[in-house]
Simulated assay, not measured.
Amino acid sequence: MLIVEFEIKPDYADQFATLVQAQADNSLKLEPDCHFFMVERREDANNKFVLSEVYTHAKAFQEHLASAHFLDFDNNIADWVIEKNVRSIE
């Protein structure tokens, strides 16, 4: 499982919430090796988000990062991100 934590500039948090949910939906719909993709908005900090993602294998995650829908998402949010951390948990 991958955990991705985002801190977004407060003025863009609502827009990010919409785009990141669309990203999750697209990943599940378009990537057969994406089995789980959940977006949580932190209650204690409205501009912080936690993504939980499960892929069949590491190569599937690399394919996710190269997908058109991810690259579009990543490009759209680039200026909104204060901090992003990605970690893998077993």
Rank of each mutant, 00 (worst) to 15 (best):
K48A: 06
A66Y: 01
Q23R: 08
Q21M: 11
Y12H: 15
K29Y: 03
I82W: 01
K59E: 14
W80C: 02
E5I: 06
D79M: 00
R87E: 06
L30Q: 15
D74Y: 08
L51Q: 07
V54S: 06
K48I: 01
F70H: 13
A58W: 01
F36M: 04
D33F: 08
T18Y: 05
Y12D: 10
F16L: 06
D79I: 00
L19N: 04
H64M: 03
A58S: 13
F49I: 09
A58G: 05
A78V: 06
K84G: 02
L51Y: 08
R42A: 11
E43P: 00
F73R: 08
A60G: 13
L71H: 07
F49E: 11
D79A: 10
N26S: 15
M38Q: 15
F36E: 12
K84L: 05
F6Q: 07
I77N: 09
E63S: 11
K59F: 03
L28C: 07
F61L: 11
K84H: 00
R87F: 09
E40W: 01
A66K: 12
I8Y: 02
A45M: 08
F36W: 07
F49M: 07
L30F: 14
A66I: 00
L19R: 14
S27E: 05
F73N: 12
I8D: 04
S27A: 15
N47V: 05
R87L: 08
R41D: 08
C34M: 08
Q23A: 07
W80L: 03
R41Y: 06
L28Q: 04
D11V: 09
T18I: 14
L30C: 09
L71F: 05
D11N: 06
E43S: 14
Q23E: 13
I82L: 12
A78Q: 13
S88M: 09
S88F: 10
F36D: 10
A68F: 10
F49V: 11
D11Q: 14
F36A: 02
K59H: 10
S67A: 13
N76Y: 01
S67I: 02
V81H: 01
V81Y: 00
E40V: 09
V86A: 09
D11A: 12
F73M: 04
A78H: 10
S88E: 13
F70E: 05
Q62F: 00
R42H: 11
F70W: 05
I77F: 01
S67H: 06
F73V: 09
F49N: 11
Y55C: 03
C34T: 13
A66N: 12
F37G: 02
D14S: 13
V54L: 09
V54I: 08
N46V: 11
D25G: 02
I77S: 07
Q23N: 15
R87H: 11
N85A: 10
L71Q: 15
I8R: 06
F73P: 15
A24K: 06
R41S: 11
S67T: 06
L30R: 11
H35C: 00
P32K: 09
L30A: 08
D44A: 10
S27K: 09
S52A: 05
A17H: 12
N75E: 15
A45S: 14
N46W: 09
W80K: 05
E7I: 03
P10Y: 01
S52K: 12
D44P: 00
L51M: 14
N85M: 06
I77R: 06
K29C: 02
D79Y: 00
D14F: 00
E31I: 02
Y12W: 05
D25E: 13
F73E: 08
Q23Y: 01
E31M: 09
A24W: 04
